[in-house]
């Protein structure tokens, strides 16, 4: 999903390619999940890197502020990033 917003292209993190760095624009969705994501450092303005993707649509491995964090695609979908 690509949304045009003030000429800025954004997209959900779970759709993004490996080995690229993205800037987080917004974190939204289920309250508990959003809160955990924020606590782990996935806050707007931060940079996140997609490291790899597990087999069979398993968790996505990401890097946020020097930490490696695994998250399911459903949770990655809560994170909107700048393209």
């Amino acid at each position: 999903m690509v949304i045009m917003h003030l000429n800025i292209m954004t997209g959900a993190l779970h759709l993004q390619a490996k080995n690229q760095v993205y800037r987080i624009i917004e974190v939204g969705g289920n309250d508990v999940i959003v809160e955990r994501l924020l606590e782990m450092g996935f806050a707007p303005g931060e940079e996140v890197r997609v490291v790899s993707q597990m087999m069979f649509a398993g968790p996505m491995i990401t890097e946020i502020q020097g930490a490696t964090v695994a998250l399911r695609l459903e949770e990655a979908a809560c994170i909107q990033v700048l393209l």
Partner: peptide
């Protein structure tokens, strides 16, 4: 309830 897997890898 909510199921999630957000797991830090040390």
């Amino acid at each position: 309830d909510v199921s999630f897997f957000i797991h830090e890898l040390p």
